[in-house]
C-alpha cells in the first residue's frame, strides 16, 4: 500500500489501509438509529421499544407529550441499533436481513438518533414525506439496492442539496431529513423519506423548492429513474410528497409530484 510519509508520521490508518487495526473512523453528519417492526414483533414484551429506549439516549430531553401520544403506535416497534460512523453502518448492513427477505408487513425505520419514527415527534410534526410504492413482483430484485442507496443518501446527507450552499460562516445548518423507511406489504414495497418541514402553501416558495430538490434527488440519483419518467401504474405510484398533517386527513391533502 502506498501511504504518504506525512500520514505515516501521523499514524493515520483507515480501514482501507488496515482492515483489522485501523485507528480512525469516518463520523456521520448525525448519529442514526435503526428500528424494526413486523407481525413477529407484535405483542412481544421486549425491552427495545422506543418508549423504553428513549431515556437511554443522551440529552436532557424529558419525554414529550408527543412521544407519549405516539406510544400506542410505537409499542410494537423494536430498536435494533444506533451508530455514528460509516464503518459501523456497513458492519450493520452486512449482518442484517435485506428488505427482499423480510416477512410481509415489515418495516425498517432508519431515523436520526433522538427522533422517533412517528408523526408526533417534535422533529416530524411539521414535516412530511416523499414516498414511492413499487409492485413487489417486478421489484423484488431492485428493492434491496434502492433501500441501500436510500440509506446511503440519508447517512451521507446528500438528499438536501442546500446544505452546502447555505451561509458558510454559520453553524452547520439543520438538515431537512429526519429519517427513511422501507415497508414490505403483500403486493408492494414502499420507500419513504421523512422531512422536518413541509411547504404550507404557495407563499412557501423557497421551502417548496428545497423539498422538491429532495424529491428529484430521490427519484433520479437514488432510485435511478429518468427525471421525466411516469411511474404510476397498477400498485405503483409516482414519487410524491404529502405533509403528515395532510396524511392524517386520509388523502384529502395536496400532493407534490416530481
Amino acid at each position: 500500500q502506498e501511504i504518504s510519509m506525512e500520514a505515516q508520521a501521523e499514524g493515520i490508518r483507515t480501514v482501507f489501509s488496515d482492515p483489522t487495526n485501523f485507528n480512525v473512523k469516518h463520523p456521520l453528519y448525525s448519529p442514526w438509529t435503526l428500528w424494526f417492526d413486523s407481525p413477529m414483533t407484535k405483542n412481544r414484551n421486549l425491552p427495545q421499544t422506543p418508549i423504553s429506549a428513549m431515556p437511554q439516549t443522551p440529552g436532557p430531553m424529558p419525554p414529550t407529550p408527543g412521544v407519549a401520544a405516539a406510544q400506542g403506535w410505537m409499542e410494537d416497534i423494536k430498536r435494533v441499533i444506533s451508530f455514528d460512523s460509516v464503518e459501523e453502518f456497513w458492519g450493520l448492513y452486512n449482518n442484517i436481513v435485506p428488505p427482499s427477505a423480510l416477512p410481509q408487513k415489515a418495516n425498517y425505520y432508519l431515523f436520526k438518533e433522538g427522533i422517533i419514527p412517528a408523526w408526533e415527534d417534535e422533529a416530524n410534526k411539521n414535516g412530511g414525506k416523499w414516498s414511492i410504492q413499487l409492485p413487489k413482483d417486478k421489484n423484488r430484485s431492485n428493492v434491496d439496492k434502492m433501500w441501500l442507496y436510500t440509506m446511503l443518501a440519508a447517512i451521507g446527507e446528500t438528499f438536501d442539496p442546500s446544505l452546502t450552499t447555505l451561509d458558510p460562516t454559520g453553524s452547520p445548518p439543520n438538515s431537512l431529513i429526519t429519517g427513511v423507511i422501507v415497508s414490505t406489504r403483500p403486493q408492494f414495497y414502499r420507500i419513504s423519506i421523512w422531512t422536518r418541514l413541509a411547504p404550507a402553501g404557495e407563499d412557501d416558495g423557497s421551502l417548496k423548492e428545497r423539498i422538491e430538490g429532495v424529491g428529484r434527488h430521490f427519484k433520479t440519483s437514488v432510485l435511478g429513474y429518468p427525471d421525466n419518467a411516469k411511474l404510476a401504474g397498477p400498485l405503483a405510484t409516482e414519487v410524491e410528497f404529502l405533509s403528515h398533517k395532510d396524511s392524517e386527513k386520509k388523502g384529502k391533502g395536496k400532493k407534490i409530484i416530481v
Binding site: H26, P27, L28, Y29, S30, V86, Y149, L152, A153, I155, G156, E157, T158, L163, T164, P172, S221
Partner: peptide
C-alpha cells in the same frame, strides 16, 4: 466532524 459523503465513496 459534520461530514457529507457521496455514494461512490461510501
Amino acid at each position: 466532524g459534520k461530514f457529507r459523503y457521496d455514494r461512490d465513496f461510501l
